[in-house]
Structures are given as structure tokens and as C-alpha cells.
């Protein structure tokens, strides 16, 4: 797969929640191997955009492309089977399944039959999970649940990993650990779309950043370029 291969694309996407016009023409492209940061204040449409890409919400206008196919009417399971893995805000661990079962329930080869993330490799990446394989999902700490959610996503051998609020509510030490893991995953060539509140860390761990404001892309540039204008970014993000 060439580095320019477009895996996910949104073009002029509009989404409504009833009367509320939440996305007002957002365009975004995720290419193979690329790490993108998605930033914005609360309520600016980040999660809405992700849920629309994943097929959980329908765009009222615009075009979604998943591997070149029309994704606007694609069911979420078909989006996922196209190599797009999702770690939602709140993690959505299956509390009634054990850690092992959470990691096995959706495990499958990726596109082209790749099996880069068998269970032993996931446990090597997240040694804490290996110690708690037979515990129930609901028994884990927040950090462990986030690791489990990422491990569960990796078990599907994705080409794109979408992380919504990657480190929300976690202790600083765990946040560091999660970013180290995200870096490891990035190095394997999996493309990523990462939402996180800490914009400096996002800039340091991505190739490109997109900033949403009131349902519109108001800033998009290379992460390195945006890192050089922290005042403008902080103003946009209200920090």
C-alpha cells in the first residue's frame, strides 16, 4: 500500500441532530500510515465526525469514502471490516466478558489476511493485561480499560485506528504509558486519528492536525508547523 493510499475520506460532510446542525461541511482524509490529531473544544463536533466515519451516524449531506467505496450508507460492522478500528470515548469495554474474551471476541485477520496482532503480541504490548486475563472487564482500572480497548481494536488487525479521547480521565503516569503505546502502534504503520485534550502531546505524536470549531475545519496543517504557532492553537482550543 502506497503512503498516499486514501483509507478514509470525508468531503463536505454535514450532520444534524434534529434541528442542531453539528457538522457544517467537514472534509478530512486519512492516508495509510498517517497519524492525524483531531482537536477542538467540547461540543465542536469531533465525536460526531468520528461516529459518522464509523457509520453510527448518517451524514445529511456530503460524501464519506472508506477505501474508495461509498461509506455514507455503510453499516458500522462493514466499516470496521474495511480495516477501521475504533476506541470510543468511555472505552465501551464489555464488562460481562473477561479480559481474554474482550481481546478474542472480534479478533480476526486484517485486510489481505494480515495477522500482525495475535494475542501474544497484544499482551507483549500491554503486559498489565496479561496479568489480568481472567478478570472481568469491569474489574479493571480506567488505564487498564483503555489499554484493553486499544488491544481489542488491534486484535482486528486494522489499517486505521481511531481513538476518541485517548487519555481522558487517566492518571499522568498512565497517560504517558498510553502515549508510549500509541507511538509504538504508529511505528508499525497503522494510520491513526487521535482526539485528545492535551494538544501539545497530540502535536508531538502526529503528522498532521485538524482543528474543528462549531462543526467546521478552521485549521489544518502539519503538526510541526502548528507546533510553531502555539498561541493561535491555544486560542482556537480555548486553553
Amino acid at each position: 500500500m502506497s503512503i498516499d493510499a486514501k483509507l478514509v475520506g470525508a468531503r463536505d460532510v454535514h450532520v444534524h441532530y434534529g434541528e442542531a446542525h453539528v457538522l457544517r461541511g467537514v472534509s478530512l482524509t486519512i492516508r495509510a500510515g498517517e497519524a492525524i490529531g483531531l482537536l477542538g473544544r467540547n461540543g465542536m463536533g469531533k465525536s460526531t465526525l468520528i461516529r459518522t466515519l464509523m457509520g453510527h451516524l448518517r451524514a445529511s449531506r456530503g460524501r464519506i469514502e472508506i477505501r474508495g467505496q461509498d461509506g455514507a450508507r455503510m453499516r458500522p460492522d462493514r466499516v470496521a471490516r474495511s480495516g477501521i478500528a475504533y476506541v470510543p470515548e468511555g472505552r465501551a469495554i464489555f464488562g460481562n466478558l473477561s479480559v481474554r474474551e474482550n481481546l478474542m471476541v472480534a479478533a480476526r485477520p486484517g485486510t489481505g489476511g494480515r495477522d500482525d496482532w495475535p494475542l501474544p503480541r497484544i499482551l507483549d504490548t500491554f503486559p498489565r493485561l496479561g496479568e489480568r486475563l481472567d478478570h472481568g472487564g469491569q474489574q479493571l482500572s480506567g488505564g487498564e480499560q483503555q489499554m484493553l480497548a486499544i488491544g481489542r481494536a488491534l486484535s482486528t488487525n486494522p489499517d486505521v485506528l481511531i481513538l476518541d479521547e485517548a487519555t481522558e480521565g487517566l492518571a499522568p503516569r498512565i497517560v504517558q504509558e498510553i502515549w508510549r503505546i500509541i507511538g509504538t502502534i504508529r511505528a508499525t504503520g497503522i494510520a491513526s486519528l487521535i482526539v485528545d485534550r492535551n494538544f501539545r502531546t497530540v502535536l508531538a505524536n502526529t503528522d498532521r492536525v485538524v482543528v474543528l470549531e462549531k462543526g467546521l475545519v478552521v485549521l489544518e496543517d502539519r503538526s510541526a508547523a502548528l507546533a510553531a504557532q502555539p498561541v493561535e492553537l491555544a486560542r482556537r482550543l480555548g486553553v
Partner: peptide
């Protein structure tokens, strides 16, 4: 079984099951 895991997961969080590529 894997089917049983999917069924239990479906009872826990239908949307997440779909997001993992399982045809709910």
C-alpha cells in the same frame, strides 16, 4: 465459544459490537 462471547458482548454494548466488525 466465540459465538457466545459475541452474544454476551451484544447484550452489553450493541454499538461497540458493531464497531468491532460483528454483524449484529
Amino acid at each position: 465459544t466465540r459465538l457466545g462471547m459475541m452474544v454476551r458482548a451484544g447484550g452489553s454494548n450493541r454499538e461497540m459490537v458493531q464497531s468491532l466488525g460483528i454483524d449484529i
